[in-house]
């Protein structure tokens, strides 16, 4: 539906428009992990609320406002992100079982490992470097 060149130029311009928000987001990520690790009161509620806000931000700022211009299916994905944000908030008001699920914890670790270790490396595996490249312009 769109060429790789168009997609990567869009990613590039999106990142430039957000800069330096990426630094802040990294700090927010570290802060959320610390919050959970130290098991402060209301930690999970704060984490879920922040994640819901980020889901909404990505759904609106990227999927709805950017990607949908070259991929109409992104509007549906944006709606999915809104639904995910609502679920993240809803889970805080739904009574939960006590005790952590071992399977759930393991799944969470895998998702986190993919997000932190594998996903950022995908562009390197695909042959793209970290720096903005004039060749994509």
């Amino acid at each position: 539906m769109f060429s790789p060149r168009v997609f990567f130029r869009q990613i590039e311009s999106y990142n430039l428009a957000l800069w330096p928000l990426q630094i802040l987001m990294l700090l927010v990520g570290v802060g959320l992990v610390c919050l959970l690790a130290r098991a402060r009161p209301n930690a999970s509620r704060i984490v879920a609320t922040v994640l819901a806000a980020l889901w909404l931000l990505v759904g609106w700022a990227y999927l709805w406002s950017r990607l949908s211009s070259i991929n109409w299916a992104a509007t549906y994905a944006a709606c999915g992100f809104v639904a995910q944000a609502i679920l993240l908030l809803a889970v805080q008001v739904i009574p939960r079982r006590t005790g952590a699920s071992l399977a759930g914890g393991f799944a969470g670790l895998i998702v986190m490992a993919v997000a932190v270790l594998i996903y950022p490396g995908l562009s390197l595996i695909a042959g793209r470097d970290w720096e903005l490249r004039k060749s994509s312009a």
């Binding site: 769109f2 168009v6 869009q10």
Partner: peptide, 12 residues
Amino acid sequence: WITFNVGDDTQL
């Protein structure tokens, strides 16, 4: 198809 789907990228 594909070639003209360039979003609002003015250069493209």
